[in-house]
Each structure stands twice: as C-alpha cells, then as structure tokens.
C-alpha cells in the first residue's frame, strides 16, 4: 500500500522536456505558477492549459499517471473549490442556507479555482516526473547560489534536501518491510478504532526510527571517510550546461508572463 505513493517519482525518458536543464524547468514552472495567479478569464486559462497539455504530450508521460498523482489531493482541491462558491459577495444569488450564500459569480470563481489548483499541481508534477531528484536539487542549489553572499548555507541545504529525497524510497521500502514483518506476527494496521490503529503504528514507527538513526550514522561515517567537508571548493562531476533549448524556453516564459499580464490588464 505504501508503494502507491508517487510523490516526486521520476519517470525515466529521453524527451525534450527530460533533457531540459533543471534550472530552466524550475524557472519556467515558477513563472507558470505566477501566470496562473495573474490569469483572470478563460482566454488566459485556456492558453495556460494548452501549454500544459502540450508539455505533457511532449514528455510522453501518460495522462493517467499524472492524474493518479492528483488522487490524494482530491479532497483539498474540492474543499477549496466549494469554499470559493460561498465566499463571494457579488453576482446573482442562486441559493442560500444558514450563513452561506451561493452566487453565480462565486460558482464561476470556484470553477477557475479548481482549474488553477489542478494546473498548478500538474505543472509541478511534470517537473518532478521528468527530472531526477538529484538534478532537481543541483538546479536549485545553482539557482540559489547568489544567496551565499548573504551567508545562507545554500550548499548545506541542498545536500540535506538531496539526502532526504534520496532516502524517501529507501524509507518507504523499509517501512513496507517492517510492516510486513509485523503483519506476519498478526499485527493489524487496517481495521479497528482510530485509537487502536494509532497504537498499532508503534511497532512500525519504533523500528523505523531506530533504523533511520542507524542509516544516518552510517551515511555520516561514509561521507567523512570520503573526506566530505561541506561545499567549500567542491567541484562537480556533471556540470549543468544551458543549451539552446533552455534559452528558447526561458525566453518563452518571459513572453508568456508578459502576455498573461497584458491580457489581465485588458480584463481578458
């Protein structure tokens, strides 16, 4: 059951999107998200949706896999949309009960909100699905490099992040293993009252903590044995290089943002 978690899972491939520099992808998705929040009407939403769909098509990631990742977030998305129906004073009143009043403008706003959140999540998914976690943290480190001037430990943060990302699958696998071992001894994680289930997690969490500490200790020793001493003077085996495609995508992102802002200005 734990294997169903697809958060941050990488789908191997060799498409245009896979080959883009991680920095480009991070910047583009940031711009895309800003554009999503600037967008006001169906014209801008439509063009943004079109861009997303084209990108997904290029990446060759099956739409079903993308949508599967949305499943755990369905409740949050629907909740946000429903709240938006009622928190809007304008427009023609449709119906009301107690303190809630639904208006047609609210309904439309909720629809946009639903679209906005879904597109936001799918666009970030596309980045994590097409970029290895390592490339992602490398890209992030390079993007945040200027902050080093302000004494922000950028390298340390990105190292922590890559270790965390690296160990998520390991920990999931380990949790799965321990869970199975306890199930084999008759532990029941799936039925019973909430309090019982919380208690049933103890046999899972304790060994998991113990082994995380053990792993952390081993990793620290292994890193020290290879003379790791932080970011100072550290070079890279694989240097990230911007290609022509990256330039095009970045220029396009600037154009996109400008276009969406202009559209919003004209109320479209």
């Amino acid at each position: 059951m734990l294997k169903d978690v697809t958060l941050g899972q990488y789908f191997p491939g060799d498409t245009l999107i896979h080959r883009l520099d991680p920095r480009t992808k991070i910047l583009f998705v940031t711009v895309y998200i800003i554009a999503l929040f600037v967008a006001k009407t169906w014209v801008s939403y439509g063009s943004l949706l079109l861009i997303l769909l084209i990108s997904i098509a290029i990446s060759k990631i099956p739409l079903a896999s993308m949508l599967r990742g949305l499943k755990p977030l369905t409740i949050i998305i629907i909740f946000t949309a429903v709240i938006n129906i009622f928190y809007n004073g304008e427009g023609r009143q449709l119906f009301s009960f107690w303190i809630f009043t639904a208006t047609d403008a609210g309904l439309i706003k909720a629809g946009y909100m639903l679209l906005r959140i879904t597109m936001l999540i799918l666009s970030t998914f596309l980045v994590t699905y097409t970029t290895t976690p390592m490339a992602l943290t490398d890209g992030l480190e390079l993007l945040l490099n200027p902050l080093k001037k302000l004494k922000v430990p950028v390298h340390e943060f990105s190292m922590m992040m890559s270790i965390a990302l690296r160990f998520i699958p390991t920990l999931i696998e380990e949790a799965d293993k321990i869970m199975n071992a306890q199930k084999a001894r008759g532990a029941d994680f799936e039925t019973g009252k909430l309090t019982d289930r919380a208690k049933a997690l103890l046999p899972l969490l304790i060994p998991l903590f113990v082994s995380s500490f053990r792993r952390a200790d081993e990793l620290a020793t292994a890193m020290e044995a290879r003379c790791y001493h932080g970011g100072e003077g550290r070079t890279r085996m694989k240097k990230l290089r911007l290609a022509a495609a990256d330039g095009i995508v970045m220029s396009f992102s600037v154009f996109l943002l400008a276009a969406i802002i202009t559209l919003a200005r004209f109320g479209l």
């Binding site: 293993k177 071992a181 306890q182």
Partner: peptide, 10 residues
C-alpha cells in the same frame, strides 16, 4: 521469519 528479522524488534 523475514530476512534480517532483527530490524522488526520494537
């Protein structure tokens, strides 16, 4: 009994 069963002790 799983492989490395000692990791299941809690």
């Amino acid at each position: 009994v799983f492989q490395y069963p000692e990791y299941q002790l809690f």
